[in-house]
Design a protein around this nucleic acid. Structure first.
Lengths: 333, 333
DNA sequence: TTGTACGCGTTATCAA
DNA sequence: TTGATAACGCGTACAA
């Protein structure tokens, strides 16, 4: 049997196709009763609109491209949840583009591909808008940054400076020397992010305001081996300098490595060594990790709203939506 | 200025729209001269066909969904190169779906989304067809497996048994004890792959045929920290048992960790410890790693061809395209 | 070998 | 508030 069309629904409901379309798109000018009739007909026939027909009739693609780093972090799953729920409400499809390599990115956005057809772009973590200015990308769609900030386009992001500050303020209230571990910014100047610099500057500010200093800082790449090595080096230093100590690990992954290493050395977490993470990964609760929780879904949802308003014609200057992290105190600190 | 349509091209070339369409779709019945005229008009106007209009007129989506594990390996970049080049020739768009989590997969394929609309599915590495049988996914599109095998659907894959055998045959020709490191198969029975079992069975077969035995086997998760730990444990054992030894590391990443650890212990690579990897990652050449090279692009290209033939109506039984790895001998063994 | 005309399933417009 | 109908841009019979 053929897939039902809007015509079938209209006939079944005894109305015109225009009315069905209006119901589908939540137009105001539909009487409650007829709306019900139409909705019932849609359910009866198990009708689903043909997206391609919409796209050609509407002159839009009703598609948003989301450019994502290739990382299996819970973070991006949650971010997508927020983005997708907002776009779904507005009947937009979401196409995900993993940022596998630079040449692929240029190819994707350069020509007649799906991403190019998209009505809007969401860029997560990396601010790729500089490529636009370099004229390497010709894309002109409305763009929103999420988990990143720029004064050139709309953005929705966590206040990482504030997160660092919260960590710092809490850290100085604890006894012992202060340590910090940062994540190395990526080498390619294109795929770069400022979140770790921000966390650092917030943390240092708080520490200085309290008249304290950070005993030693470390930098590690975002990699479990590097994290483990860094944790070992840090603890060597701390044990030599004398415990207790408090470590701000600017990502839960780094904090996890520290927890491992502390256990390995039979030291007491939350006593000899206090650890503050960042992210509140799903495992953070069971490992009793004190960390900063980010409202990731909200951040995604809001980013989507910013983009949707542009698609609906909003022309104002770039807007920034700043979200605040929350310190979750658990056993590790 | 408005985006040019097929009408504009026809007018500019002084032909009918039908002719332009035929040129676009490589139909045979077009005279060489008129084809040239049309092509020139297309170039002059910088015309690009509207994919949505095609989709509705043709009744197909001209889109292929590729389901990929979220791994930044060179492997998947190359695989996509092969897939995309084939699909592009046939004027199909490719949508990438990162396998972020299980629920997202179900959502993607479950209803009115982009993936569902696709004319065909490519599944890389993981064989998700069992979900279809469990009726968790209702998708009925033609499907092809790449880097995985199943007798239920078309597949294009490397002969990992043969790769293991090649490694084994070479390994037994070298002096010293034999070691092997395997990659732990994932826990979730859904996201699982047989490639490492296959490499193992091929390797063991070759070793046994030569009347030799593997001194000790290790298993590591696909993670640089675990790889490093495994490398250390292995070398402890090997140094105690007496060098030289030969190690088959079933993935270059594992081999790389071994190389690091060997250097750390001031042992001689290719002399005290011989290492054979698998994958031929870009860095393998400069690190002088003996490894197995996979024709990844070809594998992707062929997978695409298998799927395209189904889309063009081919109804035969599932076909398997087997590719052979090639041993690249370098300094490490 | 080529041009014309119709149909695909929507949205948008306009008159009722 | 609604229904009829004209686009939207392309593929494809069918006729020439």
């Amino acid at each position: 049997m053929r897939k039902p069309t809007i015509q079938d629904v209209a006939r079944h409901a005894g109305v015109g196709v225009g009315t069905v379309s209006r119901v589908l798109n939540n137009h105001v000018a539909v009487k409650g009763a007829t709306r019900e009739t139409v909705l019932k007909a849609i359910a009866d026939l198990e009708y689903t609109p043909n997206p391609h027909a919409r796209r050609i009739a509407g002159g839009k693609s009703y598609t948003i491209s989301v450019l994502l780093p290739v990382l299996t972090t819970e973070f991006y799953v949650r971010l997508l949840d927020g983005l997708e729920s907002a776009f779904q409400e507005a009947r937009y499809d979401v196409a995900i583009f993993p940022l596998l390599d630079r040449s692929r990115l240029e190819r994707y956005l350069g020509s007649h591909t799906l991403a190019y057809q998209a009505d809007g772009l969401v860029m997560a973590t990396y601010n790729l808008t500089q490529m636009f200015h370099e004229r390497r990308l010709r894309t002109q769609q409305p763009t929103v940054l999420v988990d990143a900030y720029s004064d050139a386009v709309d953005s929705s992001f966590m206040d990482n400076v504030s997160g660092g500050r919260l960590a710092g303020e809490y850290a100085v209230s604890l006894p012992g020397q202060l340590y910090a571990v940062w994540v190395e910014t990526e080498l390619d100047h294109l795929f770069t992010t400022r979140v770790f610099e921000d966390r650092r500057s917030g943390f240092l500010t708080a520490v200085q305001s309290a008249g304290r200093t950070v005993h030693r800082e470390f930098t590690s790449s975002f990699d479990s081996l590097a994290a483990r090595n860094t944790a070992a080096t840090l603890l060597d230093d701390a044990q030599a300098a004398g415990l207790p100590c408090t470590v701000f690990a600017s990502a839960d992954m780094l904090a996890g490595a520290l927890l491992d290493e502390v256990r390995l050395r039979s030291l007491k977490i939350g006593q000899d060594v206090r650890v503050i993470g960042f992210d509140d990964q799903p495992w953070a609760a069971e490992r009793e990790l004190t960390t900063l929780h980010q409202p990731v879904e909200s951040m995604g949802y809001e980013a989507a709203q910013l983009l949707l308003s542009r698609l609906n014609g909003y022309k104002g200057p770039p807007r920034a939506r700043r979200f605040e992290p929350r310190l979750i105190v658990r056993g590790s600190a």
